[in-house]
Design a protein around this nucleic acid. Structure first.
Lengths: 188, 188
DNA sequence: GTCTATAATTTGATAGAC
DNA sequence: GTCTATCAAATTATAGAC
């Protein structure tokens, strides 16, 4: 027996919900779908999370925390821009290729107008923290603040867009093409 | 009196639906919402489009046709990469800043897993045609096929991603930052 | 913590009158 | 082409038993 049995029902709900948001969008599944996925009834899901918005917020906060944690220390790349980019690209590739899913917050951003307000602002925090991470990382590579900011915006935007286009076209080579372009740009 | 009165109800339905998809996602509105927006009843919407999927397909095909038409001839840029980029960026800026909305197909791509199949494949065609347009444009600038392809993927991805992040952060300066970066890269 | 039962609303869609 | 009326199903959420 593995360790999977010690995962709490609450975490199972978050796992199933995250997978569904990333594949179907926040409006593309119901609390009943989540309940079925984790083997309980919808009423029990509402015991753990009173509203669907509460699920959205909890999923997004956990996703953001995990993503930033996995990225590690932004100042630990020996002042090497190529290492920063390669580390950052790897995190997105992981989401697309290993998980076979989009970035949670890109999906939420795409339907921002129909999201509960707190879910939308939690998604916004993901982007803010990512840009901050990249700015710190590039600043540690001795880029000016202006260059660090524009590089951060560019890197984040390119990867989020590449994931959506790759998924829609069912062709991960688009992502890899963009990843390669981003690496090459670091040589300049 | 302007010309707006000669717009058919069918077109009004497409206009309202496009706006709603781009703001709320395909699963973020109902045919009743569309009906109210155009001043008829839901049953009448279903007279023009039997199913919601039919609306999605029609909206996406019209959007793609209009977008490509507005881009014009991809071979008409005097072999100048900067002109190609500036023209292409302008079309996305138009969508984000003038319409104050996301790209229809980026939104659809984000919820691809919960879309009716034909809607998803119509969105895919939008990306295919855009990449083709860019490849033709860059090839006319004497880039190799490989460079034209990677530039096309990169440009499309960056702009789609930048739009989603700008909207989510309620800050168009992210888009403009990416636009500037893309222009600068053309100088290399 | 999970269940049954149920409420209140919304949704996509159809039948048939005008 | 648009309406009223209606339907069956789905949705979010709650009350209360176990």
């Amino acid at each position: 027996m593995g360790r999977s049995e010690i995962i709490s029902k609450r975490d199972e709900i978050l796992d199933a919900s995250e997978a569904m948001i990333r594949q179907l969008g926040f409006n593309g599944f119901s609390t009943r779908d989540v309940a079925e996925a984790v083997g309980i009834k919808a009423a029990s899901v509402h015991y753990h999370f009173p509203t669907k918005a509460d699920i959205g917020v909890a999923v997004t906060e956990r996703y953001t925390h995990r993503f930033l944690h996995d990225l590690g220390d932004p100042a630990a790349f020996d002042g090497d821009v190529k290492k920063v980019i390669s580390r950052y690209v790897a995190s997105f590739r992981h989401a697309l290729v290993r998980d076979e899913k989009l970035c949670l917050c890109a999906v939420l951003g795409a339907e921002i107008g129909s999201l509960p307000k707190d879910v939308g602002s939690t998604a916004r925090v993901f982007f803010e923290r990512n840009i901050e991470w990249l700015k710190v990382a590039f600043t540690a590579c001795r880029l000016t603040d202006a260059k660090a900011r524009s590089q951060a915006n560019h890197l984040l935007s390119s990867l989020e867009g590449a994931m959506i286009i790759s998924k829609t076209m069912a062709d991960d080579s688009v992502f890899e093409s963009v990843a390669k372009t981003l690496s090459r740009l670091a040589d300049l």
